[in-house]
Amino acid sequence: MIPAPVVARGPLADVNPVAKLGAALLIAFPLILTVDVVSALVALVLEIPLLVAAGLGWGAFWRRTSPVWIAAPLAAVTIALYGEPSGTVHLEWLLVRVSDGSLALAAATFLRVLALALPGVVLFSTVDPTDLADGLAQRVRLPARFVLGALGGMRLVGLLVDDWRELAIARRARGVADTGRVRRLLGMAFALVVLALRRGATLATSMEARGFGGTARRTWARESRWGARERALLCAGLGISLTAIAVSVATGAWNFILGPS
Rank of each mutant, 00 (worst) to 15 (best):
Y82F: 15
L95V: 05
A4I: 07
A53K: 15
A106H: 01
A250L: 10
G180R: 05
V77R: 06
V182E: 07
L136E: 03
W164T: 12
G120R: 04
L203C: 01
R222T: 14
A108K: 05
A232C: 05
R231M: 13
L114Q: 02
A115T: 04
A54N: 02
S99E: 05
L186S: 09
A204R: 06
G252Y: 04
V194A: 10
R217Q: 14
A196G: 04
L167C: 11
V42P: 02
A8S: 05
E223P: 12
V6H: 06
P129F: 06
W93C: 03
W226Y: 13
L81D: 05
R183M: 08
T109A: 05
A204K: 01
V161K: 14
T34H: 01
V161T: 15
T78R: 05
A228P: 15
V15R: 03
L197W: 10
G135H: 03
G227I: 11
V37W: 02
D163P: 07
L94G: 08
S99G: 03
W164Q: 11
L156R: 15
G227A: 10
G259M: 04
G180M: 07
G214C: 12
V113I: 12
R155M: 07
A13Y: 13
L51P: 09
G55C: 02
A246Q: 11
G152F: 15
A209E: 08
G211S: 09
G158A: 01
A28F: 07
R64H: 12
V140T: 13
G120C: 00
V96I: 12
L31V: 06
G259E: 00
L159Q: 15
A60C: 11
S241R: 10
L33R: 07
G101N: 00
L105W: 03
D36R: 08
F190R: 14
G252F: 00
A54V: 11
A133F: 04
G153C: 05
F29I: 09
P119Y: 03
G158V: 07
E92M: 11
A177I: 00
W58S: 14
R199A: 02
V113Q: 01
L203G: 04
G87N: 11
I257Q: 03
A150V: 15
P85N: 04
A173M: 13
R225Y: 14
A54H: 10
L160T: 14
S102T: 08
R155V: 01
E92W: 13
G237W: 11
P143D: 14
G252P: 04
A53E: 07
A53Q: 09
L148N: 12
G59Q: 13
R217W: 13
A191W: 09
D36S: 05
D128L: 04
V89M: 05
A104L: 06
A23D: 00
L33K: 02
R139F: 13
A201K: 10
P85I: 06
R172M: 10
T109H: 00
A54Y: 13
S261W: 08
A19G: 11
V37F: 06
A40H: 08
R183D: 08
R63K: 12
S102P: 01
